[in-house]
């Protein structure tokens, strides 16, 4: 479903601020894989996601989504294949537009926009139905401006928007990091449910080890721009935080000292 072939991304090349964010990264996601991607600050996990999404062009290597080479495709063209949820709840929605207008924009992802009405009544019923599964009461507030919603509500809405039109690949970029723990849990539960129901291939970046272990069928860890651990199947099911710390130490030769990841 997603094939990453030796991609390299260097920020500020040939300057004193040169930073190799991704170093020869290669991996393949099978259809239906739900990968949690974990790593410390600056390990390259968000850069990787942004490269897949087309926000940054890569310096080297190829990216295939569903057998289509998207390496040189610009962001808005790749969007036809991707559903994205961002770390900042403000990023995923248009604050001054209504809930239904935001959904309508997402419903047409990857389609050529025409001069027909932006929302039809038939769609509204569909939106109501889907929103009611969130159990946040949003289905009765279709016209409400998204800017009036809480961070958690906006993130839940962004999730719905990302999956309203089934994406080939769902990219979740620390999408619960900006929420309080209780809301974060709720949003994660919703993510889990949608991913399972729709059998979505997913790449979820998180800095929280427990979440990374609890969710998904495969765990990858990044360190200094490389994927250093890739744990799947039964091994993943049995994984504990202690295991992960030991294995990180063995591979990187360092102790894992990211408080955010440990305490979160």
């Amino acid at each position: 479903m997603l094939v990453i072939k030796k991609i390299t991304k260097i920020f500020n090349p040939r300057t004193i601020n040169e930073k190799v964010a991704l170093h020869d990264v290669s991996f393949t996601l099978e259809e239906g894989d739900f990968v949690t991607l974990i790593g410390g600050n600056g390990s390259g996990k968000s850069t990787l996601l942004n490269c897949v999404a087309g926000v940054y062009p890569v310096d080297n290597g190829d990216i295939f989504i569903d057998d289509i080479n998207v390496t040189n495709l610009c962001e808005h063209k790749r969007a036809a294949l991707l559903g994205r949820v961002f770390q900042n709840p403000i990023m995923g929605t248009a604050a001054n537009m209504g809930i239904e207008e935001n959904l309508a924009l997402a419903y047409r992802r990857g389609q050529r926009r025409s001069l027909t009405w932006g929302i039809t009544n038939k769609e509204r019923e569909h939106y109501k139905e889907i929103l009611s599964t969130l159990e946040l009461g949003l289905e009765n507030r279709l016209g409400t401006k998204v800017g009036l919603l809480s961070g958690g509500q906006r993130q839940a809405l962004t999730l719905i928007m990302a999956t309203l039109k089934k994406p080939k690949l769902l990219l979740l970029d620390e999408h619960t990091a900006a929420l309080d723990p209780k809301t974060a849990q709720k949003v994660l539960e919703i993510s889990d449910r949608i991913i399972q129901e729709e059998n979505l291939t997913t790449l979820m970046v998180t800095h929280n080890m427990k979440d990374a272990i609890k969710h998904g069928n495969r765990l990858m860890m990044m360190y200094e721009g490389k994927v250093i651990l890739d744990i799947k199947g039964e091994e993943k099911q049995k994984l504990t935080v202690e295991d992960l710390l030991v294995r990180f130490g063995n591979v990187s030769g360092e102790e894992f000292t990211n408080d955010r990841a440990l305490l979160g």
Partner: peptide, 17 residues
Amino acid sequence: CAIRATGDNPQMVRAQG
């Protein structure tokens, strides 16, 4: 709608293709 959303949040608009 796409034009209105662009002034609001261009990042989101690009993510919607």
